[in-house]
Design a protein around this nucleic acid. Structure first.
Lengths: 214, 214
DNA sequence: CACATCTTGCACCGATCGTTTCAAGATGTG
DNA sequence: CACATCTTGAAACGATCGGTGCAAGATGTG
């Protein structure tokens, strides 16, 4: 027992982050958090506050851990926008390949469970996603992409990041994930104004409207 | 009150599906399900069984509702593999644009919460995803794609589908979603054996190893 | 009407949820 | 040592969880 803390606060937060990461906010019960961290309820509440606060600190810890890796990957200089995309997604693939952390991505799991979070948690998740998007956009422009191309590629790279997290959680192999990432790095700049329906056959374009509900 | 059911079973299931869709399995409490369906606990349990069974029937109902739309979109004939991808993703965009259903995709929400499901639920989610993948692969080959190209494009299209669901949940605009879908339909066939690192700059390839944990 | 069958609302079950309280013990200061 | 401060384990809080039991009422059959 104690008069000074009997545990490493930073390590405990790292483990709590893993619990939220693996189980998602709803299923990360206090019991699972105490078991995962090794802390008692009193220590958990006394150090980090309630569950919502601990979740937000876990999100911060997540960003603090992986933000620098993305930052370094994007820092360049890069020969092309595609190289920026590839470098970014490689960081994601590396994280997913790490056997010491849960599958997927804490941010993605949290985003899909957004309705389960309180206002502060929701705002934090949205802000972190926006931050990554802006970071990507800036790096793409630095690599020679035009404004519009940078915006589009940043969005698509973020999207690919999310898809990798979902597929990882669904049990897809790392080979499959690498294939998805490689394809995303191959997306060409749009030559003319491209829409989905322009890529479809003529007869399909009619069905688009039919698929809408009355 | 009653001697014969006082409600439309099929409509109740549709509403229950929406509750799982919006909240995810964990946060879809019995109270939320009774409120969402308008049924009492007795009617809910008497008609659909326990929560896990109701979830599985909701998944079936989801497939029964949207499978035909994907089937029709893929039925072709299509002029190119890209047209298949575009037709498929257009169905997803249409579903997401439907204001009468929750954001995202029941299958994607369930996949990210896989650890929260029992064995039967997990198996069902995985089977449905595999089914979509196979359906896509077959349609792509019918549109003239080679075996390898079909496998890759099917995987990437599935991935894009998942990413659209996540981004939708995170509050991205329908314009952004359409941009992602259009870009996915523009992915070119791989000319030579393509990997992520081959798209990177020379100096980045060294960092790949550094990013791995000891 | 009599009776079996079915559905429904309501109350209730034990278990678990997130959170708080509190006493016991360890520590730092005088 | 005396005393305030801090940490910790354990117990307990009310609320909600998923699930069940049951009596009242509606129905179909004779």
């Amino acid at each position: 027992m104690a008069g000074r803390k009997q545990f490493d606060v930073d390590e405990a937060l790292r483990r709590a982050m893993h619990v939220f990461w693996r189980w998602g906010y709803s299923e990360a019960s206090i019991d699972r958090l105490t078991e995962g961290t090794g802390l008692g309820r009193s220590s958990l509440y006394g150090t980090f506050g309630d569950k919502s606060a601990l979740f937000r600190k876990s999100l911060q810890r997540y960003a603090q851990t992986y933000h620098p890796l993305y930052d370094q990957a994007l820092s360049g200089p890069h020969q092309s926008p595609s190289a920026v995309v590839a470098a970014y997604l490689q960081v994601t693939l590396n994280r997913i390949a790490d056997p010491t952390v849960p599958d997927g991505c804490l941010l993605t799991v949290s985003a899909t469970q957004l309705p389960a979070l309180d206002a502060e948690g929701q705002a934090m998740v949205r802000a972190m996603i926006d931050g990554l998007r802006a970071m990507l956009e800036q790096a793409l422009m630095a690599a020679g992409a035009g404004e519009q191309e940078a915006a589009e590629l940043a969005l698509c790279t973020l999207a690919t990041n999310k898809s990798l997290a979902v597929l990882s959680r669904a049990g897809f192999s790392s080979d499959d994930l690498a294939t998805v990432a490689a394809a995303a790095a191959r997306i060409p700049r749009e030559t003319t104004s491209t829409t989905l329906s322009s890529a479809m056959d003529t007869q399909d374009r009619g069905k688009v409207v039919e698929n809408h509900r009355g």
